[in-house]
């Protein structure tokens, strides 16, 4: 579905949390082979309440509480996906990926390729990322770069309620393993969300959330909304275009390059650690294809290579936000 078609659909205002839940509900209704599994996704409704009510609606076979056993259920989801069902795993915090990394990197990511394409793995992994709630270093990480970097996996990261629903549904319908990275600080953020049951956001398609002429900001997750706020605050001074890539791998390079060819300036804002990461990949692709359109150095906004500290003043110090985006825009415009 194109961005234009998205605009023409009937919408309702809802939060990111409600949008994801609606997407899950619609896919559970649409396809009996789809089921949810994870720690406390059922009776408890999910630790961040995303799956609330689905257990009551669909029952414990389709909304399955697992033991606290990330390696076990990540591996089982891979085996189940290879043998005819479509599990949707919730990994409570993306920091727990370390516990299940073997099943992700050596099984889920590699099976389709190692078997010469003969195993399909329609598995979705939803997980939460991000600092900002005082959850400290082991519950606040932004690790999507690992998955986007690792061959054989797709990674999406919504920044709006509409894309949260549309990407969730696209991930579940995909026959490839897809990770959906939900920033936990935007669950309460509201937006217009298409209610059409066939609305999906294609994996690999960016959204131009705001048009502008002077600077392109490629922002992800929480930083999409914050960058839109900055763009509004700079109106009349600097004309800022804001792009949410929505999908990190595959990445819609064309939309980003087209924008930079117009503006000549780029800021990349993503909460992951700055070194060797998501920012670097986006910047590398832009310089490969739009080097001669650049009028200024490319800026990046992210976490300055620290873990997320607990104490609120420390967390605020390292957490990238609208002030950092604004400063980056102003340095190059």
């Amino acid at each position: 579905m194109t961005a234009q078609a998205e605009l023409e659909l009937e919408t309702e205002t809802m939060t990111v949390r409600e949008a994801i839940r609606q997407g899950l509900r619609e896919e559970l209704e649409r396809d009996e082979d789809v089921y949810l599994m994870g720690e406390d996704v059922g009776l408890f409704g999910g630790v961040l309440e995303v799956t609330g009510g689905l257990y009551e609606e669909f029952g414990g076979e389709r909304v399955r509480d697992t033991p606290i056993s990330e390696a076990g259920f990540m591996g089982a989801a891979t085996g189940a996906a290879a043998t005819g069902t479509r599990p949707v795993v919730e990994l409570m915090f993306s920091d727990f990926m370390g516990v299940s990394m073997e099943q992700i990197m050596n099984q889920m990511a590699k099976m389709h390729y190692m078997f010469g394409g003969k195993a399909e793995l329609p598995v979705t992994v939803r997980t939460t990322e991000g600092g900002g709630m005082g959850a400290a270093s082991q519950h606040s990480g932004t690790v999507h770069t690992w998955i986007a970097h690792f061959p054989g996996l797709k990674a999406v990261a919504p920044g709006t309620a509409a894309s949260a629903k549309g990407l969730t549904k696209a991930a579940i319908r995909s026959d490839d393993p897809v990770f959906v990275f939900e920033n936990k600080m935007i669950y309460e953020q509201s937006g217009q969300v298409p209610t059409d049951e066939d609305f999906t956001v294609p994996i690999g398609k960016a959204a131009v959330e705001r048009e502008g002429e002077d600077v392109t900001v490629v922002a992800t997750q929480r930083l999409v909304g914050e960058s839109l706020g900055v763009a509004d605050s700079l109106e009349g001074d600097v004309s800022v275009e804001v792009i949410d890539p929505r999908s990190l791998y595959p990445l819609d390079t064309d939309t980003i390059v087209e924008s930079v060819e117009k503006t000549g300036r780029l800021v990349v804002a993503d909460e992951s650690p700055l070194s060797y990461g998501t920012h670097a990949e986006i910047i590398a692709r832009v310089q490969e294809e739009a080097f001669f359109s650049l009028d200024a150095p490319i800026m990046r906004v992210g976490t300055p290579d620290t873990h997320m500290p607990f104490s609120p003043p420390l967390e605020q110090e390292v957490l990238p936000g609208d002030d950092d985006v604004k400063a980056a825009i102003q340095r190059i415009s």
Partner: peptide, 8 residues
Amino acid sequence: PMATGAAL
């Protein structure tokens, strides 16, 4: 884990 998944 793969066998558990197939059994699932």
